[in-house]
Structures are given as C-alpha cells and as structure tokens.
Amino acid sequence: MRQDLRRKAIEICDRKIAQKGAGVGLSFYAFFANKNDDPELLMEAATWWIEMHQLDHFEKAVKIREMLHAGR
C-alpha cells in the first residue's frame, strides 16, 4: 500500500475511534469519498484488505490502524 493511502487510512481510523470509541468498525470504503473518483486507489485498498489480509467486510478500526502502523 502506498504511503499516502496508508497515512490517510490511519487518519481516518484515528478520527472514527475518536468519534465513536474503540469498538467502531469500518470497511476500506471509509477511506474514500462517496463517489469513485480514483478507481486505481480504491482497488489498491481493496487488494490490501481482501486479497492480502483476507479481512471481513467490517473490521475494528483499532485492528486496521495497528496493521497499518506495523506496515502490514
């Protein structure tokens, strides 16, 4: 996953956790606006989420943030 996407995803995880608490779940779609304006970046996130890590559709934001910080 490219660094700018990783950084953005961490920021979004941090924001969601701050707003809704440590139990909040999210999907990789949370990293994007409601419209598909960058399909290549969306596919990169989907590949990381689905193919690389075989994550469920919704995962805890704290888990995703830890994975991203660890460089996984």
Rank of each mutant, 00 (worst) to 15 (best):
F31L: 07
C13K: 14
V24Y: 06
A61F: 07
V24S: 11
A22T: 11
R72K: 14
A45T: 08
I17Y: 10
T47R: 11
L5P: 01
M1E: 15
N34W: 08
W48S: 03
E44H: 11
H57C: 09
F58L: 13
A18H: 12
M43P: 04
K63G: 00
A30C: 08
E40I: 07
H53K: 04
V62G: 02
A33N: 14
F58A: 06
D14G: 04
K35P: 00
G25W: 09
M67F: 02
W49R: 02
A22Y: 09
G71L: 11
R65C: 00
E11P: 00
Q54S: 10
M43K: 13
M52P: 01
K35E: 05
D37S: 15
Q19R: 14
Q3A: 09
K16T: 10
L26G: 13
F28H: 10
A9H: 01
G71C: 06
K8P: 00
L26W: 02
I50F: 09
A33T: 13
M67P: 00
N34F: 11
W48L: 05
I10L: 12
A46P: 07
L5R: 09
N36W: 13
K35R: 15
D38H: 13
A30G: 07
E59C: 10
R6Y: 07
F31D: 02
L41V: 09
A45N: 09
L5E: 00
I64F: 02
A33Q: 14
F31V: 05
I17N: 13
Q3I: 06
D14T: 12
E51W: 03
F58P: 03
S27L: 05
I64K: 02
C13F: 12
S27F: 02
E11H: 12
E11N: 15
R15C: 04
G23N: 15
V24W: 04
R15L: 08
L42V: 13
F31W: 03
M52N: 06
G21T: 06
E51P: 00
L5G: 00
F32K: 07
V62Y: 13
D38T: 13
L55W: 00
V24N: 06
R6G: 00
Y29F: 12
Y29R: 11
F31Y: 03
V62Q: 12
M67E: 05
A46R: 12
E44Q: 15
A30N: 05
L68P: 02
L55S: 03
D4Q: 14
H57K: 08
R65S: 02
S27G: 11
A70I: 03
D37A: 13
R6I: 13
L41G: 13
Q19H: 12
F31K: 03
A61E: 07
H69T: 08
